[in-house]
C-alpha cells in the first residue's frame, strides 16, 4: 500500500524496518527525506518508500529503543537525524540474517535459479 511502485505491497510489507535499520547501520545517521532518496537511488527506483510508511515506522523504532535522534535547527524548521542504538545495531544484524535466511528458503521453495534470479520455465 505504502511502499513501492514495482513490487506488490504484500511482498514488501514487513521489510521496511529491515531496510531502515540496515541503511542506518551503513550510513551512520540520516534524516527522513534522505532515507527515501537513498533507497530510491540504491534500488534504481524499484523501491520507493513513501512518507506515510516511513515516519510511523521511524517513530515506532525510536519508541522501541532501536533508534535515537539528534535535532538540528535550520531556521524555523527542525531536522531530526536518526541513528542506531546498540540495541538497534543488534536488531539490524538479526533482521538482515533472518531475511537472508528467508530468501534462501524461498529460493529453495520456489525452485528459483540462483544465478539468473528468474523463475525456471
Amino acid at each position: 500500500m505504502y511502499l513501492c511502485l514495482m513490487y506488490t505491497s504484500e511482498l514488501i510489507k514487513g521489510t521496511l524496518k529491515t531496510i531502515v535499520l540496515e541503511l542506518l547501520k551503513k550510513q551512520g545517521r540520516m534524516y527522513g527525506y534522505e532515507i527515501t532518496q537513498k533507497v530510491k537511488e540504491l534500488t534504481a527506483g524499484k523501491i520507493q518508500i513513501t512518507e506515510g510508511a516511513l515516519y510511523p515506522t521511524l517513530h515506532a523504532l525510536e519508541k522501541n529503543g532501536e533508534l535515537e535522534t539528534e535535532k538540528e535547527y535550520m531556521g524555523k524548521r527542525v531536522r531530526k537525524y536518526y541513528k542506531l542504538t546498540e540495541q538497534g545495531k543488534n536488531t539490524a544484524t538479526e533482521r538482515v540474517n533472518e531475511f537472508a535466511d528467508f530468501i534462501e528458503t524461498m529460493r529453495f521453495l520456489l525452485d528459483l535459479q540462483t544465478k539468473s534470479g528468474h523463475v525456471q520455465g
Partner: peptide, 15 residues
C-alpha cells in the same frame, strides 16, 4: 504529534 509535524515539515521543505 510534534515530532511528526517536524519530520513532515522538513520532508516537505526538502522536496
Amino acid at each position: 504529534l510534534e515530532d511528526l509535524q517536524d519530520n513532515l515539515l522538513d520532508h516537505m521543505c526538502c522536496i
